[in-house]
Design a protein around this nucleic acid. Structure first.
Lengths: 191, 191
DNA sequence: TGATTAATTGACTCGTCAGTCAATGGATTG
DNA sequence: CAATCCATTGACTGACGAGTCAATTAATCA
């Protein structure tokens, strides 16, 4: 049972790399398997079909992202400090490495038709939202919900724009815009 | 030369519908041609290959969107009025009809690797940005640029979230969030 | 009308790919 | 050491799809 876990991880890592290299989910399972150093049959053996392999890959990305958020939140108790950490995590290098961007874009496409992808995406949205609301509430009270929706949307949009703009290398400006939006939202409260 | 234009339009319309029905660009040119009521060969005859057909489709969608913006701006001179019109246009029914959503998502995927798609996307971003800045300047001065970047990102992000959430039917709440963000940005100026 | 050009067809090629499966190799265990 | 079980292979199939092309039909025009 040890080999299985190891192989799964290797295949998932290979999926990210391969999708990243091609930009699309139009990569063959054989390509992925080759990159993982195993035979094509093994990928089917462990994941059943291509879609399941990809969904497992997204779950892995989401798990990593969640762990990163939690890690960056450790020891931070001030609401603004926590909010900043959450927002910044979305633009941390790991979110752009390998094929994370390509995986996300293809995930969006898949989410239109795959209930399982839809479920995963909704889960991610909900977690992100409540993370924000938790820290916004002490600062904004009932306005927390609305602010969180706007910040969440902004993060998604700027991530998208940043990721697709090859002339951008450093996500710094995008993060700055998100933090500025937070500042604006908070300052508008006492208007 | 009349037939050519007509056929091209029909094939483009069929592409939108077919991609919309499948959610993905993984539709065959034959499917598209069938839906347009012509033979597969004709699609290749006029567009060369599948990617060109899709790019022509996106250009068409972008052109329609641009025309809609201009139409909705007619007669509006007040900055806030103009901004509202621009922002609302992004969530108008036509942006969700047929396969517009699917086309956009697949366009994002393609933009990772196709220079032509990248160019188109950048063009759209630039136009949208300067549209916003033009009306924001009188209200916000030098802050116009930053505000426009944030509003632009927010529109993209909320569009994405809205489009992928099947439980949403009416884009009203998304529009409301964008307008609220505009309001917040403007109110923060006199802080 | 007959000739020339444009529009359109659909059968065909060649390659590709998801998924299967029977066979092999390697551990483990009793 | 035999028997059993898990891990792994890679050849194979069946289907499909992009793009080509020679042939057909429709329009144009002199």
């Amino acid at each position: 049972m040890k080999a299985e876990q190891k192989r799964r991880q290797e295949l998932i890592a290979a999926t990210i790399r391969e999708i990243g290299a091609e930009g699309t989910l139009n990569v063959t399972v054989s390509q992925i398997a080759k990159r993982a150093g195993v035979s094509p049959g093994l990928a089917f053996h462990y994941f059943g079909d291509k879609e399941q392999l990809f969904l497992a890959t997204m779950r892995s990305i989401l798990r990593t992202y969640g762990a990163l958020i939690r890690a960056n939140l450790v020891g931070k108790t001030e609401p603004v400090e926590r909010l900043t950490a959450i927002l910044e995590t979305n633009f941390s290098p790991s979110q752009f490495e390998d094929g994370a961007v390509a995986a996300w874009l293809n995930f969006y496409v898949l989410a239109q038709t795959s209930p399982e992808a839809q479920r995963l995406l909704a889960l991610y949205h909900r977690r992100f939202h409540s993370n924000l609301v938790y820290s916004l509430r002490p600062l904004a009270g009932d306005a927390a919900h609305g602010i969180a929706e706007r910040l969440g949307g902004l993060v998604d949009g700027l991530y998208l724009r940043f990721a697709l703009n090859r002339s951008h290398v450093d996500p710094g400006p995008a993060v700055a815009q998100v933090l500025k939006a937070l500042e604006v939202e908070l300052s508008a409260l006492d208007g």
